[in-house]
Simulated assay, not measured.
Amino acid sequence: MVEIEKCLTRISYLVGRARQHEYPMAAAGMDLDRAAVAILRRLAETEPMRPGVLAGLLAVEASHVTRQVQQLERAGYVVRATDPHDRRARRIELTDAGRAAAHRIREASRIGMRMALADWSDDDLRQLAGLFHRLVDDFITHADVPAAGLGPV
């Protein structure tokens, strides 16, 4: 367990570095902050959704999503549309420009990934993807459960 925790800490550090965000943004020809990119990418993977639902999926406060959505609206990447199930509510949805931007970001991010994992076999990559999915799912399942022996978190 110690080695897994060490590796996750290193991955978290590497992913959180400013360069890790700046390079794909430059390659994609865009200037968005990390939070806006996370929202753009999440919306590209799903149906349009209410800001509160989006905040829950990203594990952030709704006000945080509102600020980022405003930035994405100004850039022409998202619009707020009426929720067909509740005319009083609004959903966030990508525009064509938003879908294209999410695609450019995804492709720019994959360049570094391809370079880093170029020597891995297809089987190793499939195993890694499967284990990462399992890891994330288990972390989400146990996210609100205090660690044993540590008391309330």
Rank of each mutant, 00 (worst) to 15 (best):
R99W: 06
H64M: 15
S109C: 11
T82Y: 05
D86S: 11
S63F: 08
A35C: 11
Q71A: 07
D86A: 12
Y77D: 01
I111C: 12
Y77P: 02
V79Q: 13
L54Y: 00
T46E: 13
Q71V: 13
E107D: 12
A100C: 04
T95N: 08
T82C: 10
V53P: 01
L94A: 01
P51W: 07
L40D: 01
G29S: 03
D96N: 13
L32W: 07
A28Y: 00
D33F: 03
R42A: 11
L58Q: 03
R114C: 13
V78W: 06
E47Q: 12
A100K: 06
L72C: 01
A59V: 11
S63I: 09
D83N: 11
D31M: 15
M115D: 11
P51V: 13
D83K: 05
R80C: 04
P48A: 12
L117V: 09
I39E: 03
I92W: 02
R88L: 04
G76Y: 05
R106Y: 08
L57I: 06
R34D: 11
A89N: 11
P84S: 08
D31Q: 10
M30P: 00
I111G: 12
Y77Q: 01
I92E: 01
R87I: 08
R114G: 07
Q71R: 15
E107F: 04
A118V: 09
V79I: 12
R67K: 13
D86F: 09
E45V: 13
T82K: 09
D86M: 08
R41M: 10
A116L: 07
T46H: 14
G56M: 14
A59D: 15
D33S: 03
D83R: 07
G29M: 02
R114L: 15
Q70Y: 15
R91V: 08
A100F: 02
E73S: 08
L58R: 06
L32T: 04
E61L: 14
A101P: 08
L43F: 03
A75G: 06
A59T: 11
R88N: 05
A108H: 08
G56H: 15
V79D: 15
V78I: 05
Q68G: 06
G76R: 05
Q71E: 09
A116D: 15
R34T: 06
A100H: 11
A35P: 15
Q68H: 13
P84M: 02
L117Q: 09
P48S: 09
A81E: 14
M30H: 02
P48F: 10
